[in-house]
Amino acid sequence: MDVLSDVITVARTGQPRSARVRWHAPWGQQFTSVPGSAGFQVILEGSCWLLSSKAAPLQLDAGDVLFVPRGSGHTLADHPASAMTAPVCAPDDPKLSESFASDSVDRLGQGGPVTVVLCGAYQLDPSRTHPLLQTLPDLIHLPADRSRHPELHAAVQLLAAEVGNPRLGTSATVPALLDTLLMYILRIWLAEQPTRGSTTGWAAALNDPAVAAALHAVHRDPAAPWTVAKLAAEAGLSRAAFARRFRALIGQPPLGYLTWWRMTTAARLLRTTQVPLRSIASQVGYTSEFAFANAFKRTHGLAPGAYRRKH
Rank of each mutant, 00 (worst) to 15 (best):
N165R: 14
D78L: 02
D145W: 02
T180P: 00
A11W: 03
A229I: 10
Y307F: 15
L182P: 02
Q110N: 09
I185T: 12
D2G: 10
T259K: 14
H149D: 14
A212M: 05
A306K: 13
L302E: 14
V163G: 03
V88F: 07
P91F: 09
L158V: 03
Q157P: 02
Q59T: 08
L249C: 01
N207K: 09
F296H: 05
R128N: 09
A161M: 07
T180Q: 04
P113V: 04
V65F: 14
R309M: 13
A101C: 11
T265N: 04
T75K: 04
R17K: 11
A229T: 13
F296R: 07
G73E: 05
D93L: 10
G28F: 00
G111P: 06
R148M: 11
V65M: 10
R239W: 01
A155C: 08
A295R: 05
D2S: 10
L249N: 00
A293L: 10
E98H: 15
L124C: 09
T85E: 10
F40W: 12
L139C: 05
S82W: 01
A214G: 11
Q283Y: 13
I43W: 01
E98V: 05
Q29L: 08
L255C: 06
R220F: 06
H219N: 06
P69K: 03
L58Y: 11
V228G: 09
S279L: 07
S72M: 04
T195S: 15
L66S: 05
Q59P: 09
A62F: 03
A38R: 06
A241N: 10
V88R: 14
H216N: 15
G63W: 05
C89S: 14
R148K: 13
T273E: 12
A90Q: 11
I188L: 13
A176L: 11
Q252H: 08
